[in-house]
Design a protein around this nucleic acid. Structure first.
Lengths: 357, 357
DNA sequence: CTGACGCGTGAGAGCGCTCTCACAGACGTT
DNA sequence: AACGTCTGTGAGAGCGCTCTCACGCGTCAG
């Protein structure tokens, strides 16, 4: 490696070696490494030079032995969540988390418990102090894990609104996103607007449905007979749409709570001889790569998934550093992306752009 | 916690405390904890009792400080790989890896470098000995990382055949899987069999195309004008199919190198007024959840993705333990799942079942 | 001129564990 | 009876780091 003198003999350089080379004590080197300001500039320069020369990298094990911090956090992804997502949700949160943790020079230890037994193992593992905190991506129903951990005083941040409050979380604004989608359908003149919602034991499913109802209510439009629940799958979307069309042949707009379901729904609409968006306008949710490639291209609600992961990491890092126990929450804004399926321009032009938090 | 006496005062129990409670030396406790056989049964029992009573869990940092093993391995997922997969490939390998590492009580440290700069950071990180080895899930073209790490003597196992040999890897039998798919099309009487292949700079893409050619060649059937390359996306599959149909209207079977593309292809076939499987039989690859939900249900080649992850973990664990440098490789068998899209029974009945390695 | 007070630095004590070495006692061999 | 040999155990020395404490020095008020 360039610029890295070969240290004679055994393994990576140690603090001790750096100290000797720089003619200072171990303590001083340690101060430099950890950014302690009370170090003279001469000493600091000498140490930095020595560090560069030896290619010194601190030994994490030794450090965490004395600091009693592991410098790593656990990211828990329970089975049902991992399974659910056909679109690249999963990798994207993870990337955001990885990003956010890298900012704080923290390791990401992945834990994927399968079943209750594994969850208990995770709890024991975390309880043993092997990680400084836990990030939980849980989008299905009531999971006892976050509360159990929080009760033990372990910093926890969950991604997606948890069913029970009292826990720090980051979520995207599902409700507002859904509302924007429905408002858009209203704005382009649709009068019989249906929805295909996700499972109601998932906060994301429930919140999106709530946004639908809220908007229709505000517009003074009926929603009776216009709601179907499905399971976020392609096929689920298709059959839900078939039921909707059978029951309410006159519907002219539909908000579908996920892109995958929306693509299934469009297939059903087209199979019934109707045109999208001519007869029925469709808006999905996720703005996954599938949306832009659909026929016709699918309008969809974009959500800042990476940002969610990054924010989770930041909140956890702060909680670990300050030892504070107050639950916080961050809701990230969503955006509507209008495409041909709801009569917008064929190209994927962005709709609203409020992205504060 | 049940059965866990409250230790007076400060933090988790230590070896020392266990030793005192059991009336033995630290060394003996250490032996019991690490499964050293040369411990008398009386001492062992006393130690085990004390461990239970104190809820003792070894301190990883202290341990790895002396053993010079971190007890964790890095799992590297470069940007392009993470982005590519719409189907749940990514979570599934990860789950397999998590499984396999849990068997060896090893931590999974996730590294998701974005761009070359990050890759160098990963290299430095790994080089610093923070992990005992590296697992790399890389399915795109030539990545220098695995060879760089291997050259430094760091144990590496990659998932998916690497472009250059000389590295331990685990892969699914893409070639044989493709061959089985095409053989099946031949067996049901198709005579003009096309293929939509994946990107040829990805080994998975190249190997599946090779399997196609191999089988057609063996059957003495032509393949000229019957090959299209696409990018594993829904839309890519659709347009490739349109090109194929335009060029070769008489084709009666098509092997598509991914389910997502196959679904796009089926849409194109149906849009052209043809019936699946009546006019054109279709077989996909991946056997993702999308396949069973497609219309008609899609025949597809199933691959043991979790098993691939698990096997990667095992190979790495062994390489770390034995310090051996010999590259190995494991190829896992694929299976053909016949469904309605190639005229099989509508239900998803399994085809062949050779799954040795 | 003296004492108090900063500031930069070094000495040294651990953090919790593993592992080498020494040793006591039980057994078998010549 | 004297010797080796094994087996189970303990003592103790670190692993590489952080952090407290003490100390030497220069500065400034009294």
């Amino acid at each position: 490696m360039a610029g890295m003198a070969e240290r004679d003999g055994t393994g990576p350089a140690t603090l001790e070696q750096v100290a000797r080379l720089a003619n200072v004590s171990r303590a001083t080197v340690s101060r430099v490494v950890n950014g302690d300001p009370r170090v003279g500039s001469a000493a600091r320069a000498a140490v930095e030079e020595a560090i560069r020369e030896l290619g010194y990298v601190p030994n994490r094990a030794a450090r965490s032995l004395v600091t009693r911090r592991s410098g790593s956090v656990g990211v828990v992804i329970p089975e049902p969540t991992a399974h659910l997502f056909g679109d690249p949700f999963f990798p994207r949160v993870l990337r955001g988390i990885a990003d956010g943790l890298a900012e704080a020079d923290t390791q990401l230890v992945l834990l994927m418990p399968q079943g209750r037994t594994d969850e208990l193992r995770v709890e024991r593992y975390v309880g043993a102090g092997h990680v400084d905190g836990v990030l939980l991506v849980s989008l299905h129903g009531a999971d006892p894990l976050p509360h159990d951990l929080a009760a033990r005083g372990i910093p926890v941040v969950v991604g997606g609104r948890p069913p029970r409050p009292g826990i720090t979380f980051v979520d995207v604004d599902n409700r507002r996103g859904a509302a924007m989608a429905v408002e858009h359908l209203v704005a382009i003149g649709r009068r019989r607007i249906a929805t295909i919602a996700g499972p109601q034991d998932m906060p994301a499913g429930a919140d999106r449905l709530a946004g639908y109802h809220e908007t229709l209510g505000a517009a003074g439009m009926p929603s009776d007979g216009l709601v179907e629940i499905a399971d976020f799958s392609l096929d689920g979307g298709r059959s839900a749409m078939e039921r909707l069309l059978a029951r309410e042949p006159s519907l002219d707009g539909v908000f579908v709570a996920s892109d995958l379901m929306a693509i299934g729904a469009m297939a059903a609409i087209q199979a019934s001889g109707r045109d999208v968006p001519g007869d029925v306008a469709v808006v999905g949710f996720d703005d996954s790569p599938l949306a832009a490639g659909a026929h016709p291209p699918l309008s969809s609600v974009w959500q800042p998934i990476e940002e969610m992961g990054r924010e989770m990491a930041r909140l956890l890092t702060r909680a670990v550093a300050t030892r504070e126990q107050v639950p916080r929450s961050v809701i990230l804004a969503t955006e509507l992306v209008v495409r041909a399926s709801s009569g917008g321009h064929p190209a994927g032009s962005r709709g609203s752009t409020d992205r504060s938090s």
